[in-house]
Design a protein around this nucleic acid. Sequence first.
DNA 1: CTAAAACCTGACGTCGACGTCAGAGGCAAG
DNA 2: CTTGCCTCTGACGTCGACGTCAGGTTTTAG
Lengths: 123, 123
Amino acid sequence: MRIGELATGTGVSVRALRYYEEQNLLTSERTPSGQRQYPDSAIDRVLLIQQLYAAGLTSKSIADLLPCVVNGEATPELLTRLAAERDHIDTRIADLTTARTRLNAVITAATTNLRTGQHCQRP
Amino acid sequence: MRIGELATGTGVSVRALRYYEEQNLLTSERTPSGQRQYPDSAIDRVLLIQQLYAAGLTSKSIADLLPCVVNGEATPELLTRLAAERDHIDTRIADLTTARTRLNAVITAATTNLRTGQHCQRP
DNA sequence: CTAAAACCTGACGTCGACGTCAGAGGCAAG
DNA sequence: CTTGCCTCTGACGTCGACGTCAGGTTTTAG
């Protein structure tokens, strides 16, 4: 498939796909005229990349870790990094959960205020 | 307290505190010579701001929502935004959880490979 | 009184993941 | 053949939350 099809198939922009290649996250064959050709598996690959980005990893981290994620290969150092990234994700989840709890408390309180007609609690 | 004390008391840089003021997230009294003066409550305020940043909110969103969070005041529109931010946080948590699960699977698989001495699963 | 430390206001620099524009070539349809 | 869309390679622009530097004032310690 060509780059446009991969883009629409994954919901990722053409620019982003070229950027991924530039960052060594994604490879492509080239037609004699120089156009990129991707196998069907590229779709899953791009979706995986998106997931890792969503997890807060940088391009460099993803580039380092992708061979391991894809092949199951790993050195002890890579395993350490993977575990570190996982722990980082854990702390981010914890932060988000804290913020969510706080926000939700505010929402329920404010909703109650609205319902009872009191827009402010100052006595 | 002065800005340096607030900075060390919250773990936030002086520059960041001035930035918060610029973004209308934080106010300060001024001494006759122009130096900022903060009440003790500013510490909690800054920590709250940090939490909301950690939740992925922008300065503008925080500026809009802080009066509500602090005072319990809210208009229906603000409530809608608050709920939207909360839902956004939920999806981010879900994304992170998915990535974490995936990463963890990779870690356990790779650890097993290391233990059994097989660095690659290709037959 | 003086030197160090803290504070002030601009204003430019940074970093990452792209967006966007320019200019040029490629490809299927009529 | 040409029209119109797709693709290519640079290369500069963006945005947000600050970092950092310059040049000057203020507060504090000795």
